[in-house]
């Protein structure tokens, strides 16, 4: 085999270069060489890979985070709804507790009911409640509500009863009437509605010393309402323009009749039938 001297000298030269490179730098020349050319690609690849990976990781993380966020939001909403429900239940429970405590002297069964509709009209004041004949509600039963958290007050009377709901006329309805008396003076009169915000007590004696602020209670003489039910307070006293031998008094209910959302039907059967 004939060896080309030139090629042999090149190979030997390179070998000695590698060896001397290795002896001096303790690295491989090829690596250095290749590294010099390839490092930009490596860098680029690594950088883009890392960035892509990071992006993907962040994206997936964000997607997960977003999902988690949405899930948490839903959970918060659900919890808020539950909390509101529990708060409402607590409020109802407290109101019921308060009502039964305050009304313990009324020896009649009480039926708690929710107001389901308030049909406002120009000449009638009604509310619809969610209790009917299946719950023991009967026509003409008195309807009460808590007044200022301290007392129960008469707000109306059941007029029509259906299986699951009933109609209640409020004390300012023109068809409402009750025999009442003024607590301080004992004067009696007839409470009637006039489809205005306040009902009136008619037929008070002309010498009655009633005045603004006096409390008005049911007298029990009408056989419909038990005696001693608080109705309201007198706000104005007038001479009756139709029958001047009587006085009449404007009454403010102690309950905001248009905002009441929970009432109590007093299961008292009227003593007289109509």
């Amino acid at each position: 085999m004939k060896i080309n001297k030139l090629k042999l000298s090149i190979v030997l030269g390179l070998l000695s270069l590698f060896l001397s490179w290795y002896a001096v730098k303790k690295t491989y020349f090829f690596n250095e060489f290749l590294g010099f050319f390839l490092s930009p690609f490596w860098k680029g690849a690594t950088y883009s890979g890392e960035k892509s990976r990071g992006f993907l990781e962040n994206y997936l993380f964000l997607v997960n985070l977003k999902k988690e966020n949405e899930r948490l939001k839903e959970e918060i909403l659900l919890l808020k709804a539950q909390l509101a429900q529990y708060q409402e239940r607590e409020r109802v429970y407290l109101e019921l507790e308060k009502f039964y405590k305050i009304s313990s002297k009324l020896n009649y069964p009480k039926i708690a009911a929710r107001v389901i509709y308030k049909p406002f009209d120009y000449f009638s004041d009604l509310i619809f409640i969610d209790k009917g004949s299946k719950d023991g509600v009967m026509p003409q039963m008195p309807v009460l509500a808590i007044a200022g958290g301290e007392a129960v007050a008469l707000i109306g009377q059941v007029v029509e009863v259906y299986n699951h709901w009933s109609k209640v006329i409020l004390i300012n309805h023109p068809s409402f009437a009750a025999d009442v008396k003024v607590l301080r003076t004992g004067d009696r009169g007839i409470l009637r509605g006039r489809a205005e915000s306040h009902p009136f007590v008619y037929y008070l004696p002309s010498d009655a010393q009633v005045k603004s602020g006096d409390e008005v209670l049911t007298s029990g003489q009408d056989g419909l309402f038990p005696p001693g039910l608080l109705v309201g307070q007198i706000v104005n006293v007038y001479r009756d323009p139709a029958q001047s031998i009587f006085k009449m008094a404007e009454i403010a209910s102690l309950v905001d009749l248009y905002r009441v959302d929970m009432v109590f039907v007093l299961a008292k059967i009227p003593e007289i039938s109509f």
Binding site: Y122, F123, P174, R194, A195, Y202, P241
Partner: peptide, 18 residues
């Protein structure tokens, strides 16, 4: 419609000409 309702209302309340 309103006048008839008012009339029915006046039948039920002890109104006065105030």
């Amino acid at each position: 419609f309103f006048i008839i309702k008012l009339f029915l209302f006046l039948l039920t309340v002890p109104f006065s000409f105030t």
